[in-house]
């Protein structure tokens, strides 16, 4: 069965093209869904909320995007068990929408940080880590100004932690967290930027694959 992935694009989304490209190269079809829309396309098997600066980060990162009509459709899709992946700004939007626990605060450096980081696979029992074992390490870049996750980790499942230096002051060095059911996942690092060796790492493919495997029809 072919995966049909909806990539949600808000004004100010930046990484929708990169995410779509990776998924198409993995065999999926992708469709860019606009913030104007009220529904996901018929047959959507997975949803990606890409990185960027939706609405220019006005008010609070992800706050305005989380209140757009399309997010009601994403919520219904998630509640029905469909896989939803939020990357960077997408993670911020999922937290703002209440689909993931916690919130993303400014980096403790008070600056934007773009660099390659190491991530430890903490929980290997969700769809988001492929065949990687718990405790194994992957390399993916971060690029954000507001990436310090704060909240109660027991409200979700911690999937990734930063290895070594905690780059942004996140609570417990948490880089990515899923909901209890494991079908909604958000992370600050950018797996879609790390899916070919030419760009420095292909480790992101196992995270992107999470939105593809065992797709649940909407």
């Amino acid at each position: 069965m072919t995966d049909h992935i909806a990539v949600i694009r808000f004004p100010g989304s930046l990484d929708h093209e990169a995410a779509g490209r990776v998924l198409r190269e993995a065999g999926a079809t992708t469709i860019v869904v606009s913030h104007h829309d009220h529904q996901l396309p018929q047959g959507t098997t997975g949803v990606v909320l890409p990185g960027g600066f939706s609405y220019g980060d006005h008010l609070r990162c992800g706050a305005i995007a989380s209140r757009t009509p399309i997010m009601d459709a994403v919520r219904s899709f998630a509640e029905a068990g469909g896989p939803v992946l939020g990357i960077c700004n997408g993670f911020q939007i999922l937290c703002e929408a209440g689909l993931l626990p916690g919130a993303l605060l400014s980096n403790d450096t008070q600056s934007f940080i773009c660099k390659q980081v190491g991530l430890e696979v903490v929980d290997a029992d969700t769809r988001w880590t492929g065949d990687a074992a718990a405790g194994s390490e992957i390399s993916i870049p971060i690029k954000h100004h507001d990436g310090a996750w704060q909240g109660d980790p027991s409200q979700g499942r911690v999937i990734f932690r930063y290895v070594g230096e905690n780059p942004n002051g996140a609570h417990d060095a948490i880089a990515g967290i899923a909901n209890m059911d494991g079908n909604v996942m958000g992370l600050m690092p950018h797996p879609e930027m790390a899916c070919e060796a030419l760009l420095g790492s292909a480790d992101g493919a196992l995270v992107m694959g999470g939105v593809l495997a065992q797709g649940v029809a909407a």
Binding site: L14, D15, E17, A18, R21, V22, G51, S111, F112, I113, C114, P141, K143, H190, E192, M193, C195, L199
Partner: peptide, 8 residues
């Protein structure tokens, strides 16, 4: 401090 990766 610059996003040098966007666009992949």
């Amino acid at each position: 401090q610059y996003d040098h990766l966007v666009g992949a």
